[in-house]
């Protein structure tokens, strides 16, 4: 595989995995578009308000990378689990986790999803099956595999979907976790959002010219690399992956090649840093996953401008309400500082 510099460089490849034959239809497409639109607007709103210095925690926005969240989570059932990394907002929202609690968490409030003790990097919503996120690369991958192991031991029909970036695939624990998920035949879908950069370090100086997905067959796993800005392509690959997991046929790795629009951490663009070219950035921005879906789904007659406008309106109101909720929520009580270091006896 050649160096990926432009969206058109992404060459889909399948390693023992066939994309689902299920038809991609209007209702599915519309729901995914709405989820992507919602994630985009949430991230934009966070970006707009971040400068107020009231959300005082490292925040990694996923603008430009919304498709894998929407497409993978579209296949997950309420009982399925999601594990995530630092760039977790899309995964959290697409799994149906609570928006108010997420924004309150960014604001450090007692009503936050982690009671103000986690911030953007440690989101959780057990009711929605969003099991946690952590910023140390690859650290939640093995935890997700462990949850799948517990499900298999207990005979629970439960899939672990684990999201991580390309940087995480350079960590030893990623390989260890794939090895164990494979040897123990666990219901896991590994989802690599390859955005070509680990902070500011480009993929080509970190990894040899082969897809991340090509690592999976060495661990006895099936895999695919797909255009991560093509929500339909991700949905088709993920559909088979989730089906294999449910059928007890073991884990799959889906690599979604995509691109981060904002700075690694924070609300701004970062072209001034010079680690990526304006030309490269522009080409990826023109390959906007949201815009691609919008035009494709409009052309298919699945969406119309009125529907989109209603979605925009609903999302905007939902966001107004979430930010109001966060700002009006109390900060944690001082007594909370020392609670939860150890669990109370159960």
């Amino acid at each position: 595989m050649n160096r990926i510099r432009q969206p058109r460089d992404v060459e889909p490849r399948f390693f023992g995995l066939a994309p689902t034959q299920a038809s991609f239809e209007g209702a599915v497409a519309t729901a995914m578009f709405r989820e992507m639109l919602r994630i985009r607007r949430v991230e934009e709103r966070i970006g707009e308000r971040y400068a107020e210095q009231e959300m005082r925690c490292p925040t990694h926005l996923c603008i430009g990378q919304e498709a894998p969240s929407a497409a993978v989570c579209a296949h997950l059932r309420p009982q399925d689990l999601v594990f995530s990394n630092h760039r977790s907002h899309g995964h959290y929202l697409a799994k149906g986790a609570n928006l108010n609690a997420m924004i309150a968490e960014l604001y450090g409030r007692a009503t936050g999803c982690a009671a103000g003790k986690g911030g953007s990097q440690h989101l959780i919503d057990l009711d929605a099956g969003f099991m946690g996120s952590a910023p140390i690369l690859a650290s939640t991958i093995s935890v997700g595999v462990g949850a799948a192991w517990a499900a298999k031991l207990d005979g629970r029909d439960e899939v672990s979907a684990i999201f991580f970036g390309d940087g995480a695939t350079e960590e030893g624990t990623f390989h260890e976790a794939m090895n164990y998920a494979s040897v123990a035949c666990l219901p896991v879908v590994f989802v690599c959002e390859n955005n070509l950069y680990s902070v500011h370090s480009e993929l080509d100086i970190r990894q040899p010219p082969r897809p991340v997905a090509a690592l999976a067959p060495a661990h006895g796993m099936r895999a695919a690399v797909v255009d991560g800005n093509d929500v339909e392509a991700v949905w088709k690959a993920a559909g088979t992956a989730v089906a294999h997991a449910i059928l007890g046929e073991g884990p799959t790795l889906i690599e979604c090649v995509t691109y981060r629009w904002r700075e690694h951490c924070g609300p701004n663009e970062d072209l001034n840093l010079g680690y990526r070219s304006i030309d490269e950035f522009s080409q990826w921005q023109q390959d906007d996953p949201l815009e691609r879906s919008r035009s494709a789904f409009l052309a298919a007659g699945w969406l119309n401008e009125n529907v989109i406008s209603t979605m925009e309106q609903e999302i905007s109101e939902e966001l107004d309400s979430a930010f109001d909720f966060a700002i009006q929520s109390p900060f944690p009580d001082p007594r909370e500082l020392a609670t939860h270091v150890f669990p109370d006896p159960s």
């Binding site: 594990f83 650290s139 939640t140 991958i141 093995s142 935890v143 997700g144 595999v145 462990g146 949850a147 799948a148 192991w149 517990a150 031991l153 672990s160 030893g172 624990t173 260890e176 976790a177 090895n179 164990y180």
Partner: peptide, 10 residues
Amino acid sequence: NAMTGVALGA
């Protein structure tokens, strides 16, 4: 490393 994470996940 990973097996400790697996234990934690379980």
